[in-house]
Amino acid sequence: MHTQAENDAMLRAVELAVSRLGRTGANPTVGCVLLDRGQRIVGEGCHQRAGEPHAEIVALAAAGGRAAGGTAVVTLEPCNHTGRTGPCTEALRAAGIARVVYAVADPWLPAAGGAAALAAAGIEVVGGVLATEAGWANRFWLKNVTRARPWVTWKFGATLDGRIAAPDGTSRWITSAQARADAHRLRSTHDAVLVGAGTVRADDPHLGVRHGIGGRPPIRVVMASGSAGLPFAARVFDGTARTVLAVPDTYPDIEAPPNVELLAVKASDGRLAPDALLAGLLDLGIRSVLLEGGPVAASGFLTAGCVDEIVGYIAPALLGAGPGAVADVGVTTISEALRWEFRDCVRVGPDLRISAAPAGAGGAGGAAFAGADRGPAADRGRWLP
């Protein structure tokens, strides 16, 4: 059992964690709030980036001696190993923490076991509090650890009737300047942006971060069935950011610009296998991917079960004809529909931004979070970056 003060503190810890989503490299996004003996907040913190203090250490430094006898509320089970920083379990024990409330059990075996170590030290431990919300805030890292692939967000912009372009192919601009700026903010939270060669030929995208959004440029990934016809003069190959060209592993000797990395991927009939591509990207250190390709790329990832989140920008416009946001996904009757659950809907300028996750997937797109304590209904789905 946990108290209302601890529930509120966990909501704050989740907010702290999600503020660093996509910013912590190979490390999880974690938030921590410390309560004193009277369950008043005396310190808080989040993990900023790999190699820097964990959330618990930041919060303990803020609280000082006021944490003694109190409660640590943390979104991820405190680590029990020594890496570039020491074990958080030992720091909590040394600070005199009497109770630890955490959301998600640590699935990474080298760091797991923190709850047991704390209990062995005489500290009261409660787990699973708001695990769905906390899992969503840490969804990139959890996908990396539990599924050995990057998190994939499919982003698109469309009209009310689901069209991404007019019949003549024109598409600039379906959505508003505000929506486009918001989409660039979304880009800035992902390690890489992924498109197909068809999108490069048709739109010549740069795939950088603009509209006043700061941060490092995402890695640009282009999928191609081969180098034939690839416009290497396109902006995506301009060398201003790390660029990866993914091609079938059966394709011989591709000549690409020296600033482009080649990634050989298992393919079938010239089409890259999404799961193999994602495994290769994780090997390159890419832990989250924003899929911005056209309808064929989207259908390939969807049918392979390789999309974890959909973010759509919907403009209040109708075209009546033109390409849709997604191509054939193998559905022939309504009972076969790919079912998703809305997580969020926000007005962005004149448009709507919707977010959805696979139905029944839990907070981070994995069954590990099903059945967890979800907390008050009013708080569900509010932790989008």
Rank of each mutant, 00 (worst) to 15 (best):
G96H: 11
V193Q: 11
Y102M: 00
P107T: 01
G86Q: 13
G162W: 13
G64Y: 12
R20Q: 13
D204C: 05
A183L: 12
R93Y: 15
M10H: 00
N27L: 13
R99Q: 02
Y251M: 11
R271K: 13
E336S: 14
A5K: 14
V152C: 03
A67I: 12
V222L: 06
S171Y: 15
R382Y: 00
A137G: 00
A5M: 12
A361W: 00
Y102W: 03
E52H: 12
E56R: 08
G198Q: 07
A50C: 07
A325G: 10
I164P: 01
L21G: 14
I314C: 02
L35W: 03
G31P: 01
A72Q: 06
E52V: 10
D182R: 14
P257R: 03
A359T: 06
F369G: 02
F232G: 00
G375P: 02
L282K: 00
A317L: 15
W136I: 00
D308Q: 07
I334K: 11
R210N: 11
G83L: 15
L60R: 10
P258F: 08
V193N: 11
L245R: 01
P358D: 11
H47Y: 05
G239I: 08
A158W: 01
A370V: 08
A166H: 12
L277S: 03
G127K: 02
R374D: 09
D249C: 04
I164N: 04
R187Q: 13
C88M: 13
L207N: 08
D8I: 09
D191A: 13
I314E: 03
I286E: 01
A372T: 04
G86C: 11
A105H: 02
A105C: 04
M223L: 14
T89E: 12
R216W: 00
